[in-house]
Write a protein that binds this DNA or RNA. Structure first.
Length: 638
RNA sequence: GCUGCUGUGGCUCAGAGGUAGAGCACGUCCUUGGUAAGGACGAGGCCGUGGGUUCAAUUCCCACCAGCAGCUCCA
């Protein structure tokens, strides 16, 4: 009589299979269909593959294609399948790591051959062949020494290094599928035949272990899903992202351009400049309400300033310098040193605090050539920047006020909720334990009070204080920091700033660096992708375009244009001798919110025929009521 | 900065060792047409820049510049 164990299933049912039964057999013993559908199993909370034997009482939940865990298992197995295919095509291939990532998987490798896009098709075909062979994945284990020997035999230096970094007593598992074996902790699908819906996407270089001093490996990116529909949707979303790319949209709509003679520095064309200025005007309006005072500060400072602020020591590789009359100057990469000078320029009283300086000053930062991209990473930009000088006791109030301002802006702009990241004290930092502790707990308490979800990034704060970053994603899924709120215990120290407290003593203010939109350039890029170029009416450089059906109505069309312009709207006229269909098409491609079609009927009745961007033809309306409608929409920031 | 790819009229792109093409946009003319492309004709190019190979280079090679993807970086 074989020994049995007790296995608890998700529905609470307990079964008693023989000790050592592997999970695949267990699934089959429960139901034939479960045996077929199962991809892996969660044993006491840990995902395992189906070849693992069970030798103790446990709770077991089988992962089928319907479960969220299945996707990662499939992707991980696809990475192995990719490696198997590559090894077949290029037997000299040496492999690095092949993890699952948010949107799929990749595998890093060293190959004698430089991969080209066409190679992906060949590799993918080989993957399909290996999947069709339906190899079972066999798990085996080795000691660390055994694994090192294994890596040596295969002349796989990268795997060797990975194993070397593991503790001496570790047991290392290997997975084999057909002729291919890889080092891996698993879990994996039971057979390669379970891998059906995958696609290789791109080739890139990547430093071995992310270290720019080490060799660059070739990385193949791919994605995989448990079902065909999800894969298709993912690929569609990728295409959509390309359509929304702000660089494409900006060019098509004539918003901005770049020129090789000013690399990574945007030129805002008239329509883009209008949008840019509208955003500034909008934020400026809120400053009134939230107690900020706008200042205008110099562009270039003697280098001494940046030595005081610390930028010279920590950041000079990213700054632009110039010399005049034998004195060295630096172009500002940030506004804060200027604001510190203004704060320190006269004696300050606690009665003036919190003192909030806002500054749309242009900043210049030298960014390495490989990192710049469109509007999202540029060498010159302006922020809706501000610095708050305050007493320590005000940290809570100012945090709350900032959140109110930040939320207001995101609401007005109809932006999705950003990911909120809280960075706490890093290993190297300035400021007292007490100050840090108080600041961190105040920030967190405020977030809790506001019901704001956040992710804690311990040790990710700036050396000068804890921070809250707000991230949104662009069309291609890259995360960008827009809003930020950073406490600074260092700046006041460096500039020897103080104020007279109520008790007559001199105290150090705490400084906050904060921005809501962040870099206006980056914001415009991300926002254009968010709205796919369809700017809301209140931010559209052209709000309405008047289209004439025939030449006879041009005088009336001009009248409509001037009526609208007189009301403060931005209007264009298309009176070309073209057919109305052509004018509509052009207007639609320009993403103008309202196209106003004018023919004899409209002229005779003092009307405009409205074609709304997202709706289509809405028929004729008296001009006066269209004006009311536009006014209402602009007021509602629609 | 690193790895790879790309650079041809305003835009999107084709092209071949023998000094260049399409569509759209633009201009002129015809057409006055009612909700996503009317027609004809025309103008427009140092084929990113600089070297090299060649009888001949926009095409091949090298370097540089710029862009794209990824990596690294972003006090």
């Amino acid at each position: 009589m074989a020994e049995t164990i007790r296995v608890t299933l998700p529905d609470g049912k307990v079964i008693e299979p023989a000790k050592g039964i592997n999970l695949g057999d267990l699934a089959r013993s429960i139901a034939i269909s479960l045996g077929k559908k199962a991809i892996a199993a969660v044993v006491d909370g840990q995902t395992r593959d189906l070849h693992v034997g069970l030798d103790h009482d446990a709770t077991v939940k089988f992962v089928t294609e319907a479960d969220a865990e299945a996707q990662d298992v499939v992707r991980h197995s696809c990475a192995h399948l990719l490696a198997q295919a590559v090894k077949r095509l290029y037997p000299e291939a040496k492999f690095g790591v092949g993890p699952v990532i948010e949107s799929g998987f990749y595998y890093d490798m060293e190959l004698p051959h430089q991969l080209e896009p066409e190679d992906l098709e060949k590799i993918e075909a080989e993957m399909k062949a290996a999947a069709a062979a339906d190899f079972p994945l066999k798990r085996s284990t080795l000691s660390r020494d055994g694994a090192l020997q294994w890596a040596n035999e295969r002349a796989d230096p990268y795997k060797h290094e990975l194993i070397s970094d593991l503790p001496a007593d570790v047991t290392i598992s290997l997975y084999s599928q057909g002729e291919f074996t890889d080092l891996c902790t698993g879990p994996h699908v039971p057979t390669t035949g379970r891998l059906k819906h995958f696609k290789l996407l791109s080739i890139a270089g990547a430093y071995w272990r992310g270290d720019e001093k080490r060799p660059v490996l070739q990385r193949i990116y791919g994605t995989a899903f448990v079902d065909a529909k999800s894969l298709e949707e993912h690929l569609k979303a990728r295409e959509e992202a390309v359509r929304r790319d702000h660089r494409k949209v900006g060019k098509e709509l004539g918003l901005f351009m770049f020129h090789p003679l000013a690399p990574a520095s945007p030129f805002f064309l008239p329509k883009g400049a209008w949008l840019y200025n509208a955003l500034v005007a909008y934020v400026r309006g809120l400053y009134q309400e939230f107690g900020y005072q706008e200042v205008v500060t110099p562009q270039i400072f003697a280098t001494e300033l940046f030595k005081i602020s610390g930028h010279y020591d920590n950041y000079k590789e990213n700054m632009y310098f110039t010399t005049a009359e034998e004195r060295e100057f630096g172009v500002k990469p940030m506004n804060c040193p200027a604001h510190a000078l203004m704060f320190g320029a006269k004696g300050r009283s606690y009665r003036e605090l919190p003192l909030r300086f806002a500054d749309f000053g242009r900043l210049h930062r030298f960014e390495r050539s490989g990192v710049v991209a469109g509007l999202t990473r540029v060498r010159t930009f302006a922020q809706d920047d501000g610095h708050i000088f305050m007493a320590q006791e005000s940290i809570g109030d100012e945090t709350e006020s900032f959140f109110a301002l930040q939320h207001r802006i995101y609401k007005d702009l109809r932006l999705p909720d950003p990911t909120v990241l809280v960075g706490t004290r890093p290993p190297k930092s300035v400021g007292s334990d007490e100050l840090w502790q108080k600041a961190e707990s105040t920030l967190l308490a405020q977030l809790e009070r506001l019901g704001q979800k956040y992710t804690l990034n311990p040790g990710d704060g700036a050396f000068y204080g804890p921070k809250i970053d707000f991230q949104v994603r662009d069309a291609i899924g890259r995360a960008w920091q827009l809003s930020t709120f950073q406490l600074d215990f260092n700046m006041a120290e460096r500039f020897d700033l103080h104020y007279n407290a109520q008790d007559g003593t001199a105290k150090r203010p705490v400084v906050v660096h904060r921005a809501m939109l962040g870099s206006l350039e980056r914001f415009i890029g991300v926002y254009l992708e968010h709205v796919a170029g369809n700017l809301p009416v209140w931010l559209s450089p052209v709000q309405a375009k008047v289209l004439t059906v025939m030449t006879d109505v041009v005088p009336y069309a001009r009248e409509v244009v001037s009526r609208l312009a007189a009301e403060g709207f931005r209007v264009e006229l298309d009176d070309r001798p073209e057919k109305i269909g052509a004018k509509i098409r052009d207007g639609a491609l320009e993403k103008v919110p309202y196209l106003l079609v004018i023919g004899a009927r409209e002229r005779d009745s003092g009307a405009v025929a409205i074609r709304e961007r997202s709706v289509g033809d809405q028929g004729a309306t008296p001009l006066a009521s269209f004006i009311e409608r536009l006014k209402a929409e602009v007021a509602a920031k629609r």
